[in-house]
């Protein structure tokens, strides 16, 4: 295996940001939308609670934000490590 130090640093940076994004991804859907909903039941939103909002709207909005953030962040990392497309 070609152990290119820059390539392995690039991959580490990528894995780190994927991990962070997937924690948020799971937190807003499986967390706030489903399992942790009882914890949010005290926060009213339009006739129901915050957990319901995350299940039907909030999670989707956060998903979009996550993908655009990841695309933007990776473009920067690509350039910093010199692996961007020319």
């Amino acid at each position: 295996m070609s152990e290119n130090p820059s390539a392995s640093a690039y991959w580490k940076a990528n894995i780190r940001i994927i991990r962070i994004c997937l924690v948020i991804w799971a937190l807003v859907s499986f967390g706030f939308g489903l399992i942790l909903r009882p914890l949010l039941s005290g926060i009213p939103v339009g006739g129901t609670d915050l957990g319901f909002w995350f299940a039907q709207q909030g999670s989707i909005i956060v998903f979009i934000a996550l993908i655009f953030f990841y695309a933007w962040y990776m473009n920067r990392i690509d350039r910093e490590h010199g692996v961007d497309e020319v």
Partner: peptide
């Protein structure tokens, strides 16, 4: 009602996996 929010999250959350993985 609420229980079928699973469709909304399931059919959109897959795109995060697609984009990242």
């Amino acid at each position: 009602g609420y229980d079928n929010s699973t469709y909304l999250m399931g059919w959109t959350g897959g795109y995060v996996l697609l984009a990242l993985l």
